[in-house]
């Protein structure tokens, strides 16, 4: 095989079970974000972690503007990882934008996936008529500017040093650990692709059952969005968590694990 996906996407596989549980990180982070969740599942599942190209310790050289110009490109990363490991009957756990990426991947190759767990998914972040996404275009422009200013110090300074010193991986590690992305241009593009995309139409054709974990007081994916996803995504179960914020798997891992286990054991009460 020409492309070494396992290296390109920094894939890690561990755990004592046989059924694969593939974790897909969200925008602004990398596979490290799952470290509070995976210990609860590694005895019963085969855990698969990876970084999207452009995030974490992925191979930046594999970044392609066109491919990653839509969420479909990120879904291809997920499918590539599943393909390289010959994953079948898998559970995909996707945070935030990766919730939608998981839906897109399951649409393309439904036979690979048994269930999806979507943490704070949103098919569209920008308000549109009656649809409440939570943001206006100006908010997203403000985010891009905030990112640029924050990356100016880090990435603009370090990125050339990283490119010029491939033998000094600690430089890349320093940046990756700071912002989980080593390239300001890629990070900006990922932000645009994430926050400006509209994947509402992709929800309706899903055939893989899913759990939607909706936080209370989540500014990025407000409750209306969780309800919208639940209404339009066939075979979905919606659970509203006590957890607040947008990263319950980091801020409230116990509740997140409990919800996941209940759903996987078939005990979750559909809302």
């Amino acid at each position: 095989m020409a492309v070494d996906v396992l290296r390109r996407n920094n894939v890690k596989v561990f755990g004592r079970g046989t059924q694969p549980m593939v974790f897909a990180h969200g925008f602004g982070c990398d596979q490290n974000m799952w470290r509070f969740i995976t210990p609860a599942f590694q005895n019963d599942y085969r855990i698969v972690l990876f970084d999207y190209v452009g995030s974490g310790h992925s191979d930046l050289r594999a970044y392609d503007r066109t491919r990653y110009g839509t969420l479909g490109g990120y879904a291809e990363d997920l499918l590539d990882v599943c393909g390289a490991l010959d994953v079948r009957n898998a559970i995909v756990v996707g945070h935030s934008v990766s919730g939608i990426v998981a839906v897109l991947a399951a649409k393309r190759e439904p036979q690979r996936f048994a269930q999806l767990i979507l943490i704070g998914p949103s098919p569209r972040y920008i308000n549109d008529g009656d649809y409440v996404g939570g943001f206006d275009r100006a908010d997203i422009d403000g985010l891009l500017e905030t990112m640029e200013k924050n990356y100016i110090g880090w990435a603009n300074y370090l990125a050339p040093a990283i490119m010029a010193n491939p033998d000094r991986p600690e430089l890349a590690a320093e940046l990756a650990e700071s912002f989980c992305s080593t390239d300001p241009v890629i990070a900006r593009r990922f932000a645009e692709v994430t926050f400006l995309s509209d994947n509402r139409a992709d929800l309706v054709e899903a055939t893989v059952p899913s759990l939607i974990l909706q936080c209370s007081a989540d500014i990025i994916a407000p409750p209306e969005v969780g309800e919208y996803v639940h209404r339009h995504l066939p075979l979905s179960t919606l659970r509203v968590m006590q957890a607040t914020g947008h990263c319950p798997h980091m801020s409230h891992p116990e509740e997140t694990i409990r919800e996941m286990k209940e759903y996987l054991s078939g005990k979750a009460r559909a809302a």
Partner: peptide, 17 residues
């Protein structure tokens, strides 16, 4: 609002991790 998104996507994970 933009800073809130940045807080949730970058700042909070950074502090937590």
């Amino acid at each position: 609002v933009p800073a809130r998104i940045f807080y949730q996507t970058h700042f909070f994970p950074l502090i937590k991790l």
